[in-house]
Deep mutational scan, measured.
Amino acid sequence: MGFKLLSKLLVYLTASIMAIASPLAFSVDSSGEYPTVSEIPVGEVRLYQIADGVWSHIATQSFDGAVYPSNGLIVRDGDELLLIDTAWGAKNTAALLAEIEKQIGLPVTRAVSTHFHDDRVGGVDVLRAAGVATYASPSTRRLAEVEGNEIPTHSLEGLSSSGDAVRFGPVELFYPGAAHSTDNLIVYVPSASVLYGGCAIYELSRTSAGNVADADLAEWPTSIERIQQHYPEAQFVIPGHGLPGGLDLLKHTTNVVKAHTNRSVVE
């Protein structure tokens, strides 16, 4: 069995187990497998329904001669939608809004960016022009300005110390501490036991640490421990890039980060 097929099978099995364990909360999309990078042309966006009122959005972007996937989250909030992270750029984010209108038909009224990198804030200006209120932590807003990236308009308070959590509509926002970046936030959907790890969490097929220019490698494993301790009931975990899975993604990420750190020390 090929690795790609095995990865998709694991996603399907995880979703099936969740649907059985929580039949009222989960209505997993039966329309197909989780979209992969090879299936999404740059400039297009796919939506994948995880649970009743919960979707991931998947886009792709060219970077350094390669094409990478990027995940975000959409959560229903009454007759409105909360968006977590842009679709990595203005063109993708405009396509995301169009796809949401086509498939869901509810307005996106608020959006949260989970850290300051372009795959999370690139497209904020498109959201703002569409009347979406954009939010991020003060740290993310400051770092985005320093980096020359787009800056969300509103500040999220109460997320300055490791372990801080605040309720934001249908989700809980959690600051686990520094990891992929010093400002990275985690998003949890309690009604569906869905954990969105953003770039602080890796997919299972990833074996290298990737972009760690703004990471705190020493603190990252401790931050992941905080996530595990705060959300032990999480059933569906979405990484910032690639295929979702279960809580095993947290341990896998820790292993990859520690291996990278150990290699760096040896070198």
Rank of each mutant, 00 (worst) to 15 (best):
M1T: 04
F3L: 07
L5I: 15
L5W: 13
L6F: 07
K8Q: 09
L9W: 14
L10I: 14
V11L: 06
Y12L: 08
T14G: 02
A15V: 07
I17F: 08
S22E: 13
L24M: 14
A25V: 12
A25Y: 14
F26V: 14
V28C: 06
S31E: 08
S31H: 07
E33F: 07
E33K: 14
T36I: 14
V37L: 14
S38D: 12
I40V: 15
I40Y: 15
I40L: 15
E44L: 08
R46I: 12
L47E: 01
Q49R: 12
G53A: 09
W55S: 00
H57A: 01
H57L: 02
H57E: 00
I58C: 06
F63P: 05
P69C: 06
S70M: 03
N71Q: 06
N71L: 02
L73C: 01
I74D: 01
G78T: 07
G78Y: 07
G78L: 07
G78F: 07
L81K: 00
L81N: 03
L81Y: 03
I84K: 01
A87E: 00
G89P: 05
G89W: 02
K91C: 05
L97C: 00
A98C: 07
K102G: 12
I104T: 05
I104R: 00
L106V: 13
L106M: 15
T109H: 13
V112N: 03
D118C: 04
R120E: 01
G123E: 04
V126I: 07
G131F: 02
A133I: 11
T134E: 01
Y135T: 00
S137L: 15
P138I: 07
R141A: 08
R141P: 05
L143A: 09
A144P: 05
E145F: 13
E145D: 13
N149P: 06
E150A: 02
E157A: 10
L159R: 02
L159I: 10
S162M: 09
A165M: 14
R167Q: 12
F168H: 03
F168L: 08
G169T: 05
P176M: 01
S181H: 00
D183E: 05
D183H: 03
N184K: 02
I186L: 09
V187Q: 01
Y188E: 01
V189A: 05
P190Y: 08
A192Q: 13
S193V: 08
S193M: 11
V194W: 01
L195S: 00
L195T: 02
G197S: 04
C199T: 02
A200L: 10
T207A: 13
S208A: 10
A209T: 08
G210T: 03
N211F: 07
A213L: 11
A218W: 10
E219A: 13
W220F: 04
P221R: 08
T222R: 11
I224M: 05
E225T: 13
I227N: 05
P232Q: 10
A234R: 01
A234S: 09
Q235M: 10
F236M: 09
F236R: 10
I238C: 01
P239T: 02
G242E: 05
G242W: 05
P244D: 03
G245M: 03
D248N: 09
D248G: 13
L249Q: 01
N255K: 11
H260S: 12
T261V: 14
R263C: 06
R263F: 11
S264T: 11
S264I: 14
S264L: 10
V265G: 12
V265M: 13
